[in-house]
Simulated assay, not measured.
Amino acid sequence: MMEETNGSSPHIFVLLGFSAQPSLELVLFILVSGFYVVSVLGNGIIILVSCKDMRLHTPMYFFLANLSLLDISFTTTIVPQLLVNLWGPQKTISYGGCVVQFYISHWLGATECVLLAVMAYDRYAAICRPLHYTVIMRPQLCLCLASVSWLGGLTTSMVGSTLTMLLPLCGNNHIDHFFCEMPLIMQLACVDTSLNEVEMYLASFIFVVLPLCLILVSYGHIAQAVLKIRSAEGCRKAFNTCSSHVAVVSLFYGSIIFMYFQPAKSNSHEQGKFIALFYTIVTPMLNPLIYTLRNKDVKNAFGHIVAEDCCRFTELQGPI
Protein backbone atom coordinates (compact mmCIF):
# COMPACT_ATOMS: atom_id res chain seq x y z
CA MET A 1 0.00 0.00 0.00
CA MET A 2 2.93 2.34 0.42
CA GLU A 3 3.47 2.69 -3.32
CA GLU A 4 5.05 6.08 -4.00
CA THR A 5 6.68 8.17 -6.67
CA ASN A 6 10.34 9.07 -6.86
CA GLY A 7 9.33 12.51 -5.67
CA SER A 8 7.58 13.41 -2.49
CA SER A 9 3.99 12.33 -3.13
CA PRO A 10 2.47 8.83 -3.21
CA HIS A 11 0.65 7.45 -6.26
CA ILE A 12 -2.33 6.52 -4.09
CA PHE A 13 -3.82 7.30 -0.72
CA VAL A 14 -5.39 4.79 1.65
CA LEU A 15 -8.64 6.10 3.12
CA LEU A 16 -8.97 4.18 6.37
CA GLY A 17 -12.54 5.43 6.83
CA PHE A 18 -14.58 2.98 8.90
CA SER A 19 -12.28 -0.02 8.36
CA ALA A 20 -11.76 -0.26 12.13
CA GLN A 21 -15.44 -1.28 12.33
CA PRO A 22 -15.88 -3.63 9.33
CA SER A 23 -19.25 -4.90 10.58
CA LEU A 24 -20.67 -1.40 10.03
CA GLU A 25 -19.51 -1.01 6.45
CA LEU A 26 -22.41 -2.83 4.77
CA VAL A 27 -24.94 -0.95 6.90
CA LEU A 28 -23.25 2.35 6.08
CA PHE A 29 -23.16 1.44 2.37
CA ILE A 30 -26.94 0.94 2.34
CA LEU A 31 -27.66 4.08 4.39
CA VAL A 32 -25.29 6.32 2.45
CA SER A 33 -26.67 5.06 -0.88
CA GLY A 34 -30.23 5.84 0.21
CA PHE A 35 -29.35 9.26 1.61
CA TYR A 36 -27.42 10.15 -1.54
CA VAL A 37 -30.31 9.27 -3.85
CA VAL A 38 -32.79 11.24 -1.71
CA SER A 39 -30.36 14.18 -1.53
CA VAL A 40 -29.87 14.36 -5.30
CA LEU A 41 -33.59 13.98 -6.01
CA GLY A 42 -34.65 16.48 -3.34
CA ASN A 43 -32.14 19.15 -4.30
CA GLY A 44 -32.79 18.50 -8.00
CA ILE A 45 -36.50 19.17 -7.44
CA ILE A 46 -35.67 22.46 -5.67
CA ILE A 47 -33.55 23.57 -8.66
CA LEU A 48 -36.21 22.42 -11.14
CA VAL A 49 -39.15 24.23 -9.54
CA SER A 50 -37.08 27.37 -8.84
CA CYS A 51 -36.15 27.62 -12.51
CA LYS A 52 -39.42 26.58 -14.15
CA ASP A 53 -42.08 28.27 -11.99
CA MET A 54 -42.21 32.03 -12.56
CA ARG A 55 -43.79 32.56 -9.14
CA LEU A 56 -40.57 31.32 -7.55
CA HIS A 57 -38.34 33.74 -9.46
CA THR A 58 -37.57 35.63 -6.26
CA PRO A 59 -34.31 36.25 -4.36
CA MET A 60 -35.15 33.63 -1.72
CA TYR A 61 -35.60 30.82 -4.23
CA PHE A 62 -32.68 32.00 -6.36
CA PHE A 63 -30.35 31.54 -3.38
CA LEU A 64 -32.09 28.31 -2.41
CA ALA A 65 -31.41 26.91 -5.89
CA ASN A 66 -27.75 27.86 -5.46
CA LEU A 67 -27.70 26.06 -2.11
CA SER A 68 -29.22 22.95 -3.69
CA LEU A 69 -26.64 22.99 -6.48
CA LEU A 70 -23.93 23.25 -3.83
CA ASP A 71 -25.32 20.28 -1.93
CA ILE A 72 -25.54 18.07 -5.02
CA SER A 73 -21.99 18.99 -6.06
CA PHE A 74 -20.54 18.50 -2.57
CA THR A 75 -22.04 15.07 -1.97
CA THR A 76 -21.18 13.92 -5.51
CA THR A 77 -17.55 14.86 -4.88
CA ILE A 78 -17.34 12.53 -1.88
CA VAL A 79 -20.07 9.86 -1.91
CA PRO A 80 -19.18 7.76 -5.02
CA GLN A 81 -15.64 7.14 -3.74
CA LEU A 82 -16.98 6.47 -0.23
CA LEU A 83 -19.39 3.85 -1.59
CA VAL A 84 -16.59 2.13 -3.52
CA ASN A 85 -14.46 1.97 -0.37
CA LEU A 86 -17.35 0.75 1.79
CA TRP A 87 -18.29 -1.99 -0.66
CA GLY A 88 -14.92 -3.58 -1.44
CA PRO A 89 -11.70 -4.47 0.36
CA GLN A 90 -9.74 -1.76 -1.44
CA LYS A 91 -9.75 1.55 0.48
CA THR A 92 -7.63 3.51 -1.94
CA ILE A 93 -8.01 6.68 -3.97
CA SER A 94 -5.62 7.93 -6.62
CA TYR A 95 -3.43 10.93 -5.94
CA GLY A 96 -5.32 12.92 -8.60
CA GLY A 97 -8.68 11.86 -7.18
CA CYS A 98 -7.61 12.94 -3.71
CA VAL A 99 -6.45 16.33 -4.99
CA VAL A 100 -9.77 16.86 -6.80
CA GLN A 101 -11.67 15.94 -3.63
CA PHE A 102 -9.97 18.40 -1.33
CA TYR A 103 -9.95 21.21 -3.93
CA ILE A 104 -13.68 20.90 -4.63
CA SER A 105 -14.83 20.11 -1.07
CA HIS A 106 -12.85 23.10 0.24
CA TRP A 107 -14.33 25.32 -2.48
CA LEU A 108 -17.93 24.26 -1.90
CA GLY A 109 -17.65 24.29 1.90
CA ALA A 110 -16.39 27.88 1.91
CA THR A 111 -19.02 28.89 -0.65
CA GLU A 112 -21.83 27.46 1.47
CA CYS A 113 -20.72 29.45 4.52
CA VAL A 114 -20.89 32.71 2.55
CA LEU A 115 -24.14 31.75 0.80
CA LEU A 116 -25.88 31.04 4.11
CA ALA A 117 -24.87 34.53 5.28
CA VAL A 118 -26.26 36.00 2.05
CA MET A 119 -29.54 34.13 2.61
CA ALA A 120 -29.70 35.52 6.17
CA TYR A 121 -29.27 39.05 4.76
CA ASP A 122 -32.10 38.35 2.31
CA ARG A 123 -34.38 37.35 5.21
CA TYR A 124 -33.29 40.48 7.12
CA ALA A 125 -34.26 42.66 4.16
CA ALA A 126 -37.60 40.86 3.75
CA ILE A 127 -38.65 41.27 7.40
CA CYS A 128 -36.89 44.43 8.57
CA ARG A 129 -37.19 46.42 5.31
CA PRO A 130 -40.34 44.99 3.68
CA LEU A 131 -41.30 48.19 1.84
CA HIS A 132 -37.86 48.48 0.25
CA TYR A 133 -37.25 44.75 -0.23
CA THR A 134 -37.65 44.67 -4.02
CA VAL A 135 -35.33 47.66 -4.36
CA ILE A 136 -32.68 46.28 -1.99
CA MET A 137 -32.70 42.71 -3.33
CA ARG A 138 -32.80 43.64 -7.00
CA PRO A 139 -31.75 40.91 -9.49
CA GLN A 140 -28.35 42.49 -10.18
CA LEU A 141 -27.46 42.46 -6.47
CA CYS A 142 -28.66 38.86 -6.06
CA LEU A 143 -26.50 37.73 -8.96
CA CYS A 144 -23.56 39.68 -7.56
CA LEU A 145 -23.93 38.18 -4.07
CA ALA A 146 -24.21 34.65 -5.46
CA SER A 147 -21.14 35.22 -7.64
CA VAL A 148 -19.16 36.55 -4.67
CA SER A 149 -20.08 33.41 -2.72
CA TRP A 150 -18.91 31.04 -5.46
CA LEU A 151 -15.82 32.99 -6.48
CA GLY A 152 -14.81 33.68 -2.88
CA GLY A 153 -14.97 29.98 -2.06
CA LEU A 154 -13.02 29.14 -5.21
CA THR A 155 -10.31 31.68 -4.38
CA THR A 156 -9.67 30.40 -0.86
CA SER A 157 -9.67 26.82 -2.15
CA MET A 158 -7.15 27.62 -4.89
CA VAL A 159 -4.82 29.27 -2.37
CA GLY A 160 -5.14 26.84 0.54
CA SER A 161 -5.35 23.64 -1.50
CA THR A 162 -2.44 24.62 -3.74
CA LEU A 163 -0.25 25.35 -0.70
CA THR A 164 -1.23 21.95 0.68
CA MET A 165 -0.56 20.16 -2.59
CA LEU A 166 2.98 21.61 -2.67
CA LEU A 167 3.86 20.01 0.68
CA PRO A 168 6.24 17.02 0.42
CA LEU A 169 4.54 13.96 1.89
CA CYS A 170 7.56 11.66 1.74
CA GLY A 171 5.49 8.58 0.95
CA ASN A 172 3.00 8.93 3.82
CA ASN A 173 -0.31 7.86 2.30
CA HIS A 174 -2.66 6.66 5.07
CA ILE A 175 -5.53 9.08 5.76
CA ASP A 176 -7.62 8.26 8.82
CA HIS A 177 -10.87 9.47 7.28
CA PHE A 178 -13.34 8.56 4.52
CA PHE A 179 -12.40 11.43 2.20
CA CYS A 180 -9.42 13.65 1.45
CA GLU A 181 -9.56 16.80 3.55
CA MET A 182 -6.98 19.56 3.58
CA PRO A 183 -6.02 19.43 7.31
CA LEU A 184 -5.55 15.66 7.07
CA ILE A 185 -3.24 15.99 4.06
CA MET A 186 -1.23 18.58 6.01
CA GLN A 187 -0.75 16.04 8.82
CA LEU A 188 1.04 13.72 6.35
CA ALA A 189 3.66 16.33 5.45
CA CYS A 190 7.24 15.71 6.54
CA VAL A 191 8.11 19.44 6.70
CA ASP A 192 7.03 22.40 8.79
CA THR A 193 3.44 23.40 7.94
CA SER A 194 3.24 26.65 9.92
CA LEU A 195 2.52 28.77 6.82
CA ASN A 196 -0.26 26.40 5.77
CA GLU A 197 -1.77 26.48 9.25
CA VAL A 198 -1.74 30.30 9.33
CA GLU A 199 -3.46 30.40 5.95
CA MET A 200 -6.02 27.81 7.07
CA TYR A 201 -6.86 29.70 10.28
CA LEU A 202 -7.12 33.00 8.40
CA ALA A 203 -9.38 31.45 5.76
CA SER A 204 -11.50 29.83 8.50
CA PHE A 205 -11.95 33.21 10.17
CA ILE A 206 -12.95 34.92 6.90
CA PHE A 207 -15.16 32.17 5.48
CA VAL A 208 -16.57 30.52 8.62
CA VAL A 209 -16.47 32.90 11.59
CA LEU A 210 -17.33 36.16 9.77
CA PRO A 211 -20.33 34.69 7.88
CA LEU A 212 -21.60 33.18 11.14
CA CYS A 213 -21.30 36.59 12.83
CA LEU A 214 -23.23 38.20 9.96
CA ILE A 215 -25.94 35.54 10.29
CA LEU A 216 -26.24 36.17 14.03
CA VAL A 217 -26.39 39.95 13.53
CA SER A 218 -29.06 39.56 10.83
CA TYR A 219 -31.20 37.36 13.04
CA GLY A 220 -30.66 39.69 15.99
CA HIS A 221 -32.28 42.48 13.95
CA ILE A 222 -34.97 40.07 12.74
CA ALA A 223 -35.80 39.07 16.32
CA GLN A 224 -36.15 42.73 17.31
CA ALA A 225 -38.45 43.36 14.34
CA VAL A 226 -40.59 40.30 15.09
CA LEU A 227 -41.01 41.35 18.74
CA LYS A 228 -42.50 44.64 17.53
CA ILE A 229 -45.14 42.85 15.44
CA ARG A 230 -48.41 42.98 17.37
CA SER A 231 -50.52 40.56 15.33
CA ALA A 232 -50.20 36.82 15.81
CA GLU A 233 -50.59 36.31 12.05
CA GLY A 234 -47.69 38.65 11.35
CA CYS A 235 -45.47 36.84 13.84
CA ARG A 236 -46.40 33.48 12.32
CA LYS A 237 -45.53 34.65 8.80
CA ALA A 238 -42.19 36.05 9.98
CA PHE A 239 -41.42 32.81 11.81
CA ASN A 240 -42.28 30.69 8.76
CA THR A 241 -40.11 32.92 6.59
CA CYS A 242 -37.01 32.34 8.72
CA SER A 243 -37.47 28.97 10.43
CA SER A 244 -36.25 26.85 7.51
CA HIS A 245 -33.08 28.89 7.09
CA VAL A 246 -32.39 28.84 10.84
CA ALA A 247 -32.73 25.04 10.83
CA VAL A 248 -30.30 24.67 7.91
CA VAL A 249 -27.77 27.04 9.49
CA SER A 250 -28.01 25.20 12.81
CA LEU A 251 -27.37 21.82 11.16
CA PHE A 252 -24.49 23.11 9.06
CA TYR A 253 -22.65 25.18 11.66
CA GLY A 254 -23.48 22.85 14.54
CA SER A 255 -21.69 19.95 12.87
CA ILE A 256 -18.75 22.14 11.80
CA ILE A 257 -18.28 23.55 15.30
CA PHE A 258 -18.38 20.07 16.81
CA MET A 259 -15.86 18.80 14.24
CA TYR A 260 -13.27 21.54 14.26
CA PHE A 261 -13.38 22.85 17.82
CA GLN A 262 -12.55 19.58 19.54
CA PRO A 263 -8.93 19.01 20.63
CA ALA A 264 -6.60 17.84 17.86
CA LYS A 265 -5.53 14.79 19.89
CA SER A 266 -9.02 13.99 21.11
CA ASN A 267 -9.97 10.35 21.62
CA SER A 268 -13.25 11.07 19.84
CA HIS A 269 -11.72 10.87 16.35
CA GLU A 270 -13.96 7.95 15.37
CA GLN A 271 -16.98 9.90 16.60
CA GLY A 272 -15.77 12.83 14.52
CA LYS A 273 -15.98 10.67 11.39
CA PHE A 274 -19.69 10.10 12.01
CA ILE A 275 -20.23 13.83 12.51
CA ALA A 276 -18.41 14.43 9.22
CA LEU A 277 -20.65 11.78 7.63
CA PHE A 278 -23.65 13.68 9.00
CA TYR A 279 -22.77 17.04 7.43
CA THR A 280 -21.51 15.38 4.24
CA ILE A 281 -24.47 13.08 3.61
CA VAL A 282 -27.39 13.76 5.96
CA THR A 283 -27.46 17.58 6.02
CA PRO A 284 -27.62 17.94 2.19
CA MET A 285 -30.50 15.44 2.24
CA LEU A 286 -32.36 17.30 4.99
CA ASN A 287 -32.03 20.76 3.42
CA PRO A 288 -34.63 20.24 0.65
CA LEU A 289 -36.93 18.42 3.09
CA ILE A 290 -36.71 21.32 5.55
CA TYR A 291 -37.50 23.87 2.85
CA THR A 292 -40.30 21.90 1.17
CA LEU A 293 -42.20 20.35 4.07
CA ARG A 294 -43.03 23.80 5.51
CA ASN A 295 -43.25 25.58 2.17
CA LYS A 296 -46.55 25.53 0.28
CA ASP A 297 -45.09 27.52 -2.64
CA VAL A 298 -42.54 24.81 -3.49
CA LYS A 299 -45.05 21.99 -3.07
CA ASN A 300 -47.63 23.78 -5.22
CA ALA A 301 -45.02 24.61 -7.87
CA PHE A 302 -43.88 20.99 -8.02
CA GLY A 303 -47.51 19.84 -8.28
CA HIS A 304 -48.12 22.24 -11.20
CA ILE A 305 -44.99 21.04 -13.02
CA VAL A 306 -45.96 17.38 -12.60
CA ALA A 307 -49.52 18.13 -13.78
CA GLU A 308 -48.24 20.04 -16.85
CA ASP A 309 -45.85 17.24 -17.76
CA CYS A 310 -48.62 14.67 -17.41
CA CYS A 311 -50.85 16.76 -19.70
CA ARG A 312 -48.10 17.07 -22.31
CA PHE A 313 -47.48 13.32 -22.14
CA THR A 314 -51.20 12.64 -22.61
CA GLU A 315 -51.35 15.01 -25.60
CA LEU A 316 -48.34 13.32 -27.20
CA GLN A 317 -49.96 9.92 -26.79
CA GLY A 318 -53.09 11.15 -28.58
CA PRO A 319 -56.42 9.37 -28.58
CA ILE A 320 -56.25 5.62 -28.11
Rank of each mutant, 00 (worst) to 15 (best):
Val135Asn: 12
Val135Leu: 12
Val135Tyr: 14
Ile136Gly: 05
Met137Ser: 04
Arg138Trp: 14
Pro139His: 10
Gln140Met: 12
Leu141Gly: 05
Leu141His: 03
Cys142Phe: 03
Leu143Ser: 13
Leu143Phe: 14
Cys144Trp: 11
Cys144Met: 12
Ala146His: 02
Ser149Phe: 02
Ser149Pro: 01
Ser149Cys: 14
Ser149Arg: 05
Leu151Asn: 02
Gly152Glu: 09
Gly152Cys: 08
Gly152Phe: 09
Met158Pro: 00
Met158Val: 11
Val159Ser: 03
Val159Asn: 06
Gly160Ser: 07
Leu163Gln: 05
Thr164Glu: 07
Thr164Ser: 08
Met165Pro: 00
Met165Ala: 06
Leu167Cys: 03
Pro168Val: 09
Gly171Met: 15
Asn172His: 10
His177Tyr: 15
His177Glu: 13
Phe179Trp: 13
Glu181Cys: 09
Glu181Val: 11
Met182Pro: 02
Pro183Leu: 14
Leu184Gln: 14
Ile185Phe: 10
Met186Val: 12
Gln187Asp: 14
Ala189Ile: 13
Cys190Met: 08
Val191Thr: 08
Asp192His: 08
Leu195Glu: 01
Leu195Thr: 10
Asn196His: 00
Asn196Asp: 06
Glu197Ala: 05
Glu197Ser: 11
Glu199Thr: 10
Glu199Ile: 08
Glu199Trp: 14
Met200Ala: 15
Leu202Asn: 09
Leu202Met: 09
Leu202Gly: 12
Leu202Ser: 12
Leu202Ile: 13
Leu202His: 09
Leu202Arg: 08
Ala203Thr: 12
Ala203Gln: 11
Ser204Ala: 15
Ser204Leu: 15
Ile206Gly: 03
Val209Gly: 02
Val209Lys: 01
Leu210Tyr: 03
Leu210Ala: 11
Pro211Val: 02
Leu212Glu: 09
Leu212Trp: 13
Cys213Pro: 09
Cys213Asp: 13
Ile215Phe: 04
Ile215Asn: 03
Ile215Gln: 10
Ser218Ile: 02
Ser218Thr: 02
Ser218Leu: 03
Tyr219Leu: 07
Tyr219Val: 01
Tyr219Ser: 09
Gly220Trp: 12
Gly220Lys: 05
Gly220Pro: 02
His221Asn: 04
His221Val: 00
His221Arg: 02
Ile222Gln: 02
Ile222Ser: 02
Ala223Ser: 13
Gln224Pro: 00
Val226Glu: 01
Val226Gly: 07
Val226Arg: 10
Leu227Gln: 01
Lys228Gly: 00
Lys228Arg: 08
Ile229Gln: 10
Arg230His: 11
Glu233Leu: 04
Glu233Gly: 06
Gly234Pro: 11
Cys235Tyr: 07
Cys235Pro: 01
Lys237Val: 13
Lys237Met: 14
Phe239Ser: 11
Phe239Pro: 03
